[in-house]
Design a binder for these strands. Structure first.
Lengths: 115, 115
DNA sequence: TCAATCGTCAACCATATGGTTGAATATGGA
DNA sequence: TCCATATTCAACCATATGGTTGACGATTGA
């Protein structure tokens, strides 16, 4: 079984996908616009976007005939946390971790004071 | 051309290699000893170690007939820096994260019932 | 000296990955 | 309605990846 971490790291291992993430930092984008600066087919970019979506690094929402891509930096932070503390995290419960991150992002103040 | 970042991220994308890195956190190890807990051939582990070496995540030094593997955590820094360059990444709430970790590190049963 | 140990190499295999092209499926707008 | 636009699908291709086995070279130690 492929873990979330596997998917995040292998998604980040491709320069095209990292460049796409960098573009999405500016703003949400339509698939066609994401593909525009690349010298490869739209279908190829579409596949890259699927990989980024499965890794949780972006989400895609279809409005009309346009599918908008949005950066989801949460997924990357999981990777950073692993790198920064991979020794201690050995038997990490990823479900609980995900919940922790979700909670923290949703209500930072509440998460801080534990209420 | 494969960048350093490509190599680090794709090296980290494999669970066997992440586990090896975790083992090397404890201490330097001989190739044979690295391979021991895995249910795969020594040759397979040797290949994984080559990949980790090319990514700069470990170094290998041969003393006598034993080749010692040493963790090189600085190589991961480049990856962290790339990820953190994403401005939208809110700084992690380390206090809350610490609490989460403490809870995680208890036995699974304890963590489950929250005691 | 000579067998045992350490680790890699070479050949091979199955599957994954990253790309292509052309057809198909919405949806929007005139 | 009908065409253009947005995106994916399907088939295909070349190469990469992660594993195997068996042979091999280097080194140790009895």
């Amino acid at each position: 079984m492929e873990t979330a971490l596997d998917q995040v790291f292998s998604a980040l291992a491709d320069p095209t996908r990292r460049r796409i993430l960098g573009m999405l930092l500016e703003d949400d984008m339509a698939v066609t616009d994401v593909a525009e600066p690349f010298e490869m087919s739209l279908a190829a970019i579409s596949k890259h976007l699927t990989i980024l979506t499965r890794a949780g690094l972006i989400t895609q929402e279809k409005r009309g005939r346009v599918k908008w891509c949005k950066l989801e930096p949460l997924a990357m932070r999981e990777a950073v946390v692993w790198i920064e503390s991979f020794g201690e995290l050995e038997p990490l419960n990823y479900d609980a971790f995900e919940q922790f991150l979700q909670n923290e992002l949703k209500t930072p103040a509440e998460a801080e004071d534990g209420s």
